[in-house]
Amino acid sequence: MLKFASCDGCQLSLLDCEDELLAIAGAVDIAYFLEATSSVRPGPYDVALVEGSITTPHDLERVRQIRKQAGFLVTIGACATAGGIQSLKNWADHEEFMRCVYAQPEFISTLSTSTPIAAHVPVDFELRGCPISRHQLVEVLAALIAGRKPRTPTHSVCLDCKRRGTVCVEVAQGIPCLGPITQAGCEAICPAYNRGCFGCYGPAAQANCDSLVDHYQQQAVGTERLVPLLRNFNAAAPEFQAASNRVAGGDAS
């Protein structure tokens, strides 16, 4: 379990697998997992679970080393698969950020962008979500142990809303919701609590962002609401990025 720019929430999802934790610990040999133990062993590793995005020159070097050490590389979470919330800096001046935050910005070595792992090294499997679903994490581990393909859906959140009987918050209440263009995996939790989908699992397969954005604009949902909705945890996912740029009328730097 290795980490780049991230909040550690996805790593903690493994520790959240309370019912399955002993079975997991019995089935695999955990060699490197700083959130669980400071005892670490050097690679190579059969499987590397990689959290976080690439934001520093050092990250760039380290991710290449990890790739060499990993038999099967799985990225976990929105940061590792799409650049995360920190990819908002792709639209801004990162040097200005440094000047605002740090007393001595000259000590900071950082890239101007936050990018997913797959932009730098080949990735064998991507697990979406902010944070990832522990059920999907167990599914990926079980599949790797059994030597089969992991089963994670690529359909929209809407399908899961309907399976659990949630009434559509967009149609019944006019709440802008990214559910129709967002990949399932979260068990459609936000609409069940009367909130529109924030797009935590990134774009669904063949997401028709243009049609949904056009519709919201016709419903008088303003740019000031639509752009932040699309520029969220998966702001730099190509489909969401293109959609938010179209709404904002600008380009990502």
Partner: peptide, 30 residues
């Protein structure tokens, strides 16, 4: 096809749509 979101909502609310998928779900031990 340009307007359709392919989100599945129409088929889910349809009282006659009957499609389903069948999957084998194993625990970690198999």
């Amino acid at each position: 096809g340009k307007r359709c979101l392919s989100c599945t909502n129409c088929t889910m609310v349809c009282p006659t749509c009957f499609c389903s998928s069948v999957t084998e779900v194993a625990d970690l031990t198999g």
